[in-house]
Simulated assay, not measured.
Amino acid sequence: MLVTLLTDFGDFYPGVMKGVILSLVPDAKIVDITHSIEPQNVFQGAFLLYHSYKFFGSAIHVAVVDPGVGGKRRAIVVETKHNYFVAPDNGLVYPSAKEDGIVRIFEIDSKISEIVGELSTTFHGRDIFAPATALLLKKDFRYFREIDEIKTLDIFEHSVAGNRVCGKVAFVDRFGNVVTNIPASAVMGAKGFILRGVEFPMVKCYEDVDIGKPLALIGSFGTLELSLREGNASEFLKIRKGEIELEVLR
């Protein structure tokens, strides 16, 4: 079964996780989804995992965005109809697991770190999640205890009131496009939006406006995005995360 990795680790740490997995299962196939989640941004990690896991068929998805590492939060494995999700219990995998259909939930015993030889309070990706992944590949559940529930997270929470729509910035891509969590259904019929005094006309594609001009469209995530054609909307608006409130033009 394929293994995917999604973390906020940047470089170095993912390589160590791969080393642990490969030392225990040398023929494991590991794919990096991303290690560029904003540090500690669980919401962004959950959003991007939700929009990527389904393209791998059946896989073990290891997701580590873990501001509570070393604390009271549990380490979990979620078995779904087609996948396994390995992660901290902070809502990170809930949207994906719920969509795929949760079958069983397990808490990972911290004693699993004996396989690696140590248990740090800062790198459970290496000490807990990587060995748990290797054991899943071997169908070995000896360090897993079945539990009833996990922490939930709604990545599409938004509101519409009159000519206002509120949501969250889910992701800013390398082009500076501001990807929101506001679904297309919430803005059907809108002719555009105003944010911070700037009008973003609703269009179908980037070339519908001149270079350097603002625009809004429904992007590949199926949610509302704010952009500048061949520019950086995030820098222009000075926004990267958090809540967002737009005036809707009808």
Rank of each mutant, 00 (worst) to 15 (best):
K151E: 13
A87W: 08
F43S: 10
L195H: 06
K98N: 09
R229E: 03
M202L: 11
P26W: 02
V209C: 03
I155L: 09
K139M: 06
R196Q: 15
Y53A: 01
L136D: 07
P14N: 06
G167P: 11
V31W: 00
L246M: 05
E243F: 04
V20K: 04
T122H: 08
K72D: 13
R74L: 03
F43C: 12
I60A: 02
K238N: 14
F144K: 01
G219D: 15
F171I: 11
T152F: 00
V20T: 10
S96M: 09
I21V: 13
N177L: 12
R145H: 12
V179K: 10
A170S: 15
K168H: 10
E230A: 11
I239C: 03
E79P: 00
K213F: 14
E243H: 06
N41V: 01
E79K: 15
K72W: 02
G68R: 00
V187T: 09
L22W: 00
V86M: 02
E230N: 14
M1P: 11
V3S: 02
K138R: 09
N41Y: 03
G231E: 09
G167M: 06
Y143I: 02
K72C: 00
K213Y: 13
F200C: 05
E245M: 05
S185L: 08
K138C: 03
G117V: 08
I211V: 15
I37A: 02
V209H: 01
F200I: 10
Y143V: 04
S96Y: 09
A75E: 06
Y94I: 03
F221N: 08
T121I: 12
V209Y: 02
G167F: 11
V16D: 04
S96C: 10
V20D: 11
F129V: 08
H158V: 13
C205K: 14
M202A: 01
V169S: 05
L6T: 10
K138D: 00
V16T: 11
F106P: 12
A186Y: 06
A186V: 08
V78T: 01
T7C: 07
A186M: 13
F123A: 05
L249V: 15
F221H: 13
I218N: 11
I30R: 00
V203A: 14
I150V: 04
K168R: 15
R164C: 12
R126Q: 05
F236H: 05
Q40K: 05
R250N: 14
T152H: 06
V172G: 05
G19M: 05
G91P: 04
V42K: 02
V248L: 07
T180S: 14
